[in-house]
Amino acid sequence: MSSARSRGWAVLLLLPALVVVLVFFVYPVFALSARSFLEPTPGFSQYVDLVTNETTVTILVRTLVVALLVTVVTLLLAYPYAYLMSLFGPGMRTFLLFLVLLPFWSSLMARTFAWIVLLQPSGPVAGFLGFLGLDGVKLLGSQLGVTIAMTQVLLPFMVLPLFNTMTGIDRRLLSAAHSMGASRFRAFRTVYLPLSVPGVAAGSVLVFILSLGFWVTPRLIGSPQQSLVGQLIETKVGKLLDFPGAGAISVVLLVITVVLLLAVGGGVRALVPGAKTDGGRDDG
């Protein structure tokens, strides 16, 4: 009885957030999606236009490729970092966490403009590459520059879920594996790595989905040849005033995101049978 009552109160506490989400998220998304099916005539004409337009398809594919690339690079950078964080004592761990969180405390615009300064032809990154004998690498206005900047911006979103999962892994399991004769690598590969999969999945999904919607970074650092879906939607809304067309692309992105979430959620549960007991961290 009392638990049902307290649950009632909890729902009441949820109400303000729920109203905000309904009014400012669900309703606009629904309205925009609805327009993509209703205009100019009810049906799927917007979606037919979308898949038959070569540019739209190119940009969609490019967005998926860039998102995948950024996800892989952030994972490669974040995994060892999070692993070290989980090994160190509280002092060092706080310091490393501080370094990861630092970008969170500065605005995305400030960081993007910092990258413009760093990546410009006379800038320090080009200077360093020149020092290594790599002259004339185009950083600003290129896919390379966009990928570098996006990776930096999204790194915390990979490190934090990984770190979260890794702190929950019982390191005695590794000792157990060693005592059974496993090499360090084997113990890592067969024991540690699978246990860290929920973190890898959570971080990857987060970074991938955020990459899909990136707009500021490719717009400011890339040139039109690197434009991603966000910029296409901007052109459709801001220049062509084509709300239904923009809605159609948004719906496609939304569908990709939902499918991905379901697939990864299912995949993790299939791969790591015990994952569900791991503090529920895999249920993203």
Binding site: I59, T235, L240
Partner: peptide, 15 residues
Amino acid sequence: NQDEVVQRWTDWSAG
């Protein structure tokens, strides 16, 4: 022709 120009330009610059 604004829509067509923007479309063609987008195809050229971003495609």
